[in-house]
Amino acid sequence: MSAIIVLALRIMAALALYGFLGWAFYYLYQEVKRQGANIANKRIPGITLMIKPKDGKPSLRYFNQTEITIGRDPGCDVPLSEDTISARHAHLVYHHNQWWLEDLSSTNGTRLNNTFITIPTVVTTDDDIQCGGYVMSINLSENVIIEPTQRLKKKPAQINEDDD
């Protein structure tokens, strides 16, 4: 009799052990799903650049991507046609919830608010980037946030909470 009770307990112990593992694996699965969703839904605040040539009409450009390249090369996101500007002159990168301006070893350097930058520097609204004769004013003001998917719109609260 005791042996049958203990046999039942031995089976229960095995079930408890695998209960632990089962939950651990289930939580891992949930975490993978959540992280995937977080990264997929990570919103990039848009950035608006007011590009003013040395002499000419300023133009307004809006971007919602993580990297914006600036240079003489026509493949750049912001192509600037001026001889003092290098082919790939500088770029703006979004990480750590910030936009960073980085000079890409350009010949004549990049200035931020009239100061040459040597290391990646955080930029914000109303900062002026100067490359050669061009000046680009930054506007990070909201309202221009692009909502990436329809589904997100339904449960914005949940996304915010999980966005750790």
């Binding site: 112990a13 408890a16 052990l17 209960g19």
Partner: peptide
């Protein structure tokens, strides 16, 4: 805490 509960159950039965 859920995982620790399972652990405690396992050790209790043992």
């Amino acid at each position: 805490s859920r995982l620790l509960q399972w652990t405690a159950l396992f050790l209790f039965i043992q």
